[in-house]
Amino acid sequence: MTGRPRAATEDHPLVKFALCAIAIGFIALFLVMPLATVFSEALAQGWRMAFDALAEPDALAAIRLTLIVAAIAVPCNMVFGLAASWAIAKFDFRGKNLLITLIDIPFSVSPVVAGLVYVLIFGLQGWLGQWLRDHDIKIVFALPGIVLATIFVTFPFVARELIPLMADQGRDEEEAAVSLGASGWSTFFRVTLPNVKWALLYGVLLCNARAMGEFGAVSVVSGHIRGLTNTMPLHVEVLYNDYQYVGAFAVASVLALLALVTLALKSLLEWQFAGEIAASHHH
């Protein structure tokens, strides 16, 4: 009878080792290796080639378009997400469950279908096509269509983060604020928003990552006009199909970098404000 006693829930060291090995191996094979490949392919012919590929006008246009789309779609979804989760978490009304289900639609529907729907509505042959053409409004194969598709795909991120937290917090604090004389606005900005700010930020970061990376829905509505309606993911595809591997991987690595920055930012915030985040979850 030697060695320290093992807790009932503690597994055999071998089991522990095997589980860790499987997890790490899986992550390395499916996450780390592809990511490393992207960067190594981009730099396969040296930094110069990679930079040249990025400085090319079409690539720059794609980067600019992606940033513009994200800059419009993310704030929109932040406002929509806040409004929807506020309504769902703090009020009782008919059709609440339906609304919750509807918010999840973008997660369950294929992005391609989402894109097709927009083409069907706003396209030249679509329901509103004739009217839009008469009024000289371009939606499909232009920036508005890309923004719409992106908003659709990234809609749930903010709301999904906020609903459980807001529901958990209840409306006591808002009621307290009102009974102390606060108006609706000051209740929102001084009580509701500060209470969910970390979840909101997290949702916005996720939403942003997806907005910049979205391929399927945007691909359908963009029309793939080089230098005009190609976002970064679409530009990667175009270059790759043209056998311009360095260019394709260079743009891809910029995308990957943006994602990594998002991730780093999130971890940094979590680390910096760990205490405050914990406090906003528990009373």
Binding site: E173, E175, A176
Partner: peptide, 9 residues
């Protein structure tokens, strides 16, 4: 309030 409803932040 019964659960005090203090502003936690």
């Amino acid at each position: 309030f019964q659960q005090y409803a203090l502003f936690r932040h």
